[in-house]
Amino acid sequence: MNSLQDALYNWLTIKVVIDKRPDDTAAVETEKMFYDILLDNHHLTNIEVTTDEEMYYVEYDQKGERKKQRFPRELIEVMLKQIQKEPEKYRNFSE
């Protein structure tokens, strides 16, 4: 995953899911994978997420600079809304 924007999008999308479904083991594992990409491939630190009615904002440090990207809520919450709409398709299977 070369694009920082894609990596942030993927991580944030699954992070929103685990914020609502903290016991979803597949989501937790996926979030960790994307988070590790942010740390290892893109060298991000101090990642913080805020939101308002329209956007998610991700602030982070990279190479000594504080940076910020934003993503529309409707784009980030697509997966969560799909899971909530059809929870039977997204059951949590214990290890």
Score class of each variant (00 low, 15 high):
M1L: 02
M1S: 00
N2I: 09
L4V: 01
Q5N: 05
D6K: 02
A7E: 01
A7D: 02
L8Y: 03
Y9C: 02
Y9T: 04
N10M: 05
W11N: 06
W11H: 13
W11L: 08
L12Q: 04
T13W: 04
T13Y: 03
T13R: 15
I14A: 06
K15M: 05
V16L: 03
V16P: 00
V16E: 13
V17E: 06
D19G: 03
D19I: 00
R21Q: 13
R21H: 15
R21P: 00
P22Y: 15
D23V: 00
A27S: 12
A27W: 10
E29P: 00
T30L: 15
Y35M: 04
Y35Q: 01
Y35K: 01
D36W: 07
D36A: 08
D36Y: 14
D36H: 13
I37Q: 00
L38G: 04
L38S: 02
N41K: 14
N41C: 08
N41I: 03
L44E: 15
L44T: 12
L44R: 09
T45F: 01
N46A: 11
I47S: 03
I47W: 06
V49S: 04
T50H: 04
T51A: 12
D52P: 13
E53S: 12
E53N: 10
M55Y: 12
M55E: 03
Y56Q: 11
Y56W: 13
Y56C: 09
Y56E: 12
Y56V: 09
Y56P: 15
V58Y: 00
E59G: 08
E59Q: 11
Y60F: 15
D61C: 11
Q62W: 00
K63M: 11
K63V: 04
K63C: 08
G64C: 06
R66E: 10
K67M: 15
Q69S: 03
R70H: 14
R70C: 14
R70E: 13
F71V: 02
P72F: 01
P72I: 00
R73F: 02
E74D: 07
E74N: 14
E74Q: 13
L75V: 14
L75E: 14
I76D: 09
E77K: 02
E77I: 05
V78E: 04
V78C: 04
V78P: 02
M79G: 01
L80H: 02
K81S: 10
Q82W: 05
Q82A: 14
Q82K: 15
I83K: 08
Q84T: 08
Q84W: 10
K85Y: 01
K85N: 05
K85A: 08
E86N: 14
E86K: 11
E86S: 08
E86Y: 09
P87Y: 11
P87L: 10
P87G: 06
E88G: 12
K89P: 02
K89I: 03
K89F: 07
Y90V: 10
Y90E: 07
Y90T: 12
R91W: 07
F93V: 05
F93M: 03
E95P: 09
